[in-house]
Amino acid sequence: MQGDVQESGRDETPEERADRKWVDLLQEIRVAQTGVQILFGFLLTVVFQPSYRRLSDADQALYMVTIVLGATAVGALVAPVAFHRIVTGRFIKPEAVAWASRLTLLGLLLLLLTMTAALLLVLRTATHDDGYVPWIVAGVAGLYILWWLVIPTVLRMRLGRHRPGSSDGDEREAD
C-alpha cells in the first residue's frame, strides 16, 4: 500500500511515522539515561561517606533536593519504556510517542535541575565559599539552558515550522 506523503517530504503512513519517531526517541533517551543514571548512582553514595555528616544543614538539605531531583529525572527518562511496554499492541503508537516525548522532555528538564543542584553542592563543599560559587553555577545552568532549550527553540522557530499535516499534533517532535 502506498504511504501517505506528509508535508515533511516523507512517504510514510501514520504508523510508519510513529515507528520511526519511536526509534528516534529511544536513541535520544539512551544518551540521557546513561548520564542521569551514572550521576544518580554517584549521588546515592554520598550519604554513606563519613564526610557527609560534616556537611552543614543547608548542604545536607541541598543534597536531599539533588537526590530527589535525580530520582525523578531517572523516573521520567525510564517512563517511556514502561509506557511503551504497557500500551504495546493497543494500536495507539502515535499517542504513545507523543506522551513518551513529553516524558523525555520532563526528564531532561529534571536532569538539568539535578546537574545544577549537584554542581552547586560540590562547589560549595569544595570551596567553602558562597561568594562566587552561585555565579559559576548560574553560568553553567545558563549554558545548559542555551544549548538544550534556547538554540533548538530558535532553530525550530526559524526553520522548523509546524507542518499542518502532522499526524500526532505534537510539533516538538523531529521529522
Rank of each mutant, 00 (worst) to 15 (best):
V154M: 05
T104E: 12
G131D: 08
L112T: 13
S56E: 09
R17C: 06
T88I: 06
A58S: 10
Q6W: 14
I136F: 14
E173N: 00
D130N: 07
Y132G: 00
V23K: 14
T45M: 15
S8V: 04
Y52H: 11
F42C: 12
A117E: 02
R17N: 09
V122W: 04
V74N: 10
T153G: 03
L69T: 03
Q2R: 10
W99C: 05
R30C: 04
L149Q: 06
D129F: 05
I86A: 15
Q37A: 14
I67M: 10
I136L: 15
A141H: 03
G35L: 12
F40M: 13
R90T: 10
F42G: 15
G70K: 02
W22K: 13
V74I: 09
L25F: 03
G131F: 08
V137T: 04
P14R: 08
Q37G: 04
Q60M: 11
L26Q: 15
A18H: 04
R161T: 02
P80W: 10
V36A: 14
L44P: 01
V150I: 15
K21M: 15
G165V: 00
L105G: 15
E16C: 02
R90L: 14
T127Y: 12
G35E: 10
I67P: 02
V47K: 14
L25R: 07
A100Y: 01
T13W: 06
G131Q: 04
Q60Y: 07
Q37C: 13
E95N: 08
L69P: 01
R124G: 02
Y132H: 10
L105T: 01
A73D: 03
D19T: 05
R20S: 10
V68C: 09
D129V: 02
V122Q: 04
I92P: 00
L77V: 05
A73K: 05
G3N: 11
D175R: 02
Q49M: 13
L55T: 03
T125G: 12
Y52N: 07
M1Q: 08
Q60T: 01
L108A: 01
V46Q: 14
E173T: 09
I67Q: 09
I151C: 02
T104I: 00
R10Q: 14
P152L: 12
S167A: 11
D57V: 12
